[in-house]
Design a protein around this nucleic acid. Structure first.
Ligand SMILES: NC(=O)c1ccc[n+]([C@@H]2O[C@H](COP(=O)([O-])OP(=O)(O)OC[C@H]3O[C@@H](n4cnc5c(N)ncnc54)[C@H](O)[C@@H]3O)[C@@H](O)[C@H]2O)c1
Ligand SMILES: NC(=O)c1ccc[n+]([C@@H]2O[C@H](COP(=O)([O-])OP(=O)(O)OC[C@H]3O[C@@H](n4cnc5c(N)ncnc54)[C@H](O)[C@@H]3O)[C@@H](O)[C@H]2O)c1
Lengths: 213, 213
DNA sequence: TGGACTTCGTTAAAAATTTCACGATATTAT
DNA sequence: ATAATATCGTGAAATTTTTAACGAAGTCCA
């Protein structure tokens, strides 16, 4: 069996999300072409991706939506729930705590941590906010998978160190700085500014601007 | 001159950000290897990327930090300010309005729009919130480049339509759905759940979990 | 000043990803 | 039942991206 690429796995999650929303419709089947139209990609890309997960399509007809959805989901998540903890309950952190889609997507925020004493022991959306002293004990007890960094950028390396020391192997970093971690820890940086700037440069946006001036 | 790839442009923004933070230090020069260590990448990747922007390095010494920073910045942004408008001033939208890094990164939120009458005409962090009726007029007057979708997913296609009709060519979509737009409009989807789930699958995180069970 | 050493910039090779082309297979209509 | 049609699955080709290799160019120190 061939290894499934990162790109394919990412797209698989998009497929899953889309298929789930299609379940409500009256149609039972969808073709790679129709799915491609919805997602703005190509039918070949979709068939190629799906082929890594098995043969579930029906030539001449397409994919049974429900079957494809469960096939993909079982294959890549195996009924797991991804358990995360949040560091920093400020503007962004609070929004994350209130984001209802995480639960639907089987991502569970187990606990939050903040330095600000006024926030400690409060709950937001059912998630308790702890002092940083509790990091190690909470993480050990709760079988946490991933740590989210949503603290000011000056503190993000410190928090990353805490996360690593607690034994987590995955970090999502929203702070606009690079953090250093051991090789066996994976960091995913989400940097809004860069997304905006890159979109500006990589698309027709910049061209449109030039015309207007 | 060769075309610069999207990946290179994205990384260039990371380099710029890092170089700016290094300006405060006492060192004037940095080698590709040192920068790679900071960013968790390789020296070759960095030299390759930089080579698209010109020859600025000094063999045996490295890059002058300030010079490299200005070279990259001039090349890809040409002193532009990226002008954006926000749709949806809820949990996420409010956090975005309060995010101070956008200004530092030359991204300016010109205006926000919301459906909720109680929010209209209020200001957050100096940015005025308008009724949806004003979309077209504000966008036309203000030379906007990009629209941000931070409304509930059920409304995101509608808002996308508004954005397209107003003539914008770039959309950042935070809602966890795919939106359909004409070919000349570029959409960047930022889907937190997928980032988390993909990190979980693509890294050591899942393996660590298996061991623990 | 010269020679050892560093680090850049670039061409070539390797790896990863996407796209193409088409045979195989199920469907649908006659 | 058969022909026409639609759509899947996949090996091979094309493209893109990363990595390797190394000559060129400047640095640094004795
Ligand atoms: N606001 C946004 O929309 C946005 C967008 C992208 C990225 N970010 C980044 O996310 C991070 C948080 O942004 P924010 O707007 O929520 O900031 P914020 O100032 O509103 O919140 C920061 C929170 O972190 C807490 N904190 C500070 N130091 C801490 C530490 N060492 N350990 C634990 N908690 C600590 C503070 O008490 C506060 O509650 C920043 O790095 C920011 O650059 C924010
Ligand atoms: N909260 C998060 O951390 C988070 C994270 C990732 C993605 N998202 C996505 O971002 C979007 C917004 O999330 P949120 O948590 O801020 O939701 P929210 O409910 O707090 O805010 C939504 C806002 O949009 C406004 N609105 C509704 N329909 C509108 C319309 N047609 N035009 C303009 N404004 C409209 C509402 O009045 C409200 O102010 C959602 O699609 C959500 O899935 C949120």
């Amino acid at each position: 069996m061939k290894k499934i690429s990162k790109k394919t796995i990412e797209r698989a999650f998009v497929y899953i999300r889309t298929l789930k929303s299609l379940l409500k419709d009256k149609e039972d089947y969808i073709s790679s072409q129709e799915l491609a139209d919805i997602l703005g990609t190509t039918d070949v890309q979709i068939r190629k991706d799906i082929s890594y997960f098995g043969k579930v399509g029906i030539p001449g007809k397409g994919y049974e939506i429900r079957e494809l959805e469960t096939t993909l989901e079982k294959f890549i998540l195996q009924k797991n729930i991804v358990r995360v903890v949040l560091f920093g309950v400020g503007n962004l952190g609070t929004a994350l705590l209130k984001y209802p889609e995480f639960n639907k997507d089987r991502i569970k925020i187990i606990a939050a941590f903040d330095r600000d004493n006024r926030k400690i022991d409060k709950k937001i959306n059912g998630v308790k906010i702890y002092s940083l002293k509790k990091v190690s004990s909470v993480i050990k007890k709760e079988k946490v998978d991933i740590g989210i960094i949503a603290v000011p950028k000056e503190c993000s390396q410190n928090v990353a160190n805490l996360i690593v020391r607690a034994g987590l192997k995955g970090i999502v970093n929203f702070a606009p700085v690079s953090i250093q971690v051991p090789d066996d820890v994976t960091v995913k940086n989400i940097d809004f500014s860069i997304e905006f700037l890159a979109l500006f440069c990589n698309s027709n946006v910049a061209k449109a601007k030039q015309k207007n001036l």
